[in-house]
């Protein structure tokens, strides 16, 4: 599905890099533990997380992810958004909680990846 579909399904708001909302994501990873993201992510382009600090953006950069969805209405700081914009990572904010966000995306066809 496309990034804009992710935002729509999660009833979320795109906070930066909206210009790449037509890019495809095939698989996602949901985690609040960045070390686990570093350990397990392979080709998942979307990170779904309730953790909200600059290292979430850094972690996504390291793993070549293109989109981060912050669940539970977490509000990224201006610095985080600036970093994400500089790195070409779309940020979505959604009021959905982790379990339902993952469930909705999974039901809509998004996979967990390898």
């Amino acid at each position: 599905m496309k990034i804009k579909d992710v935002a729509e399904i999660l009833q979320g708001e795109i906070l930066c890099c909206e210009e790449q909302a037509d890019r495809e994501v095939q698989a996602a990873c949901g985690s609040d533990m960045m070390s686990d993201v570093l350990a397990y992510v392979k080709d998942q382009a979307l990170l779904i997380t309730g953790l909200c600090n600059p290292q979430v953006i850094r972690t996504a950069v390291m793993m070549d992810m293109i989109c981060i969805a912050f669940v539970r209405g977490k509000e990224p700081t201006a610095e985080m958004i600036e970093l994400a914009r500089a790195k070409g990572i779309t940020i979505i904010r959604t009021p959905r909680r982790m379990f339902s966000a993952c469930g909705l995306l999974y039901s809509a066809g998004l996979k967990s990846g390898k």
Binding site: S35, L38, L51
Partner: peptide, 12 residues
């Protein structure tokens, strides 16, 4: 709370 310190750093 920052998402690290799970004892995965050195193993990774």
């Amino acid at each position: 709370n920052l998402g690290f310190g799970a004892g995965m750093g050195l193993p990774n």
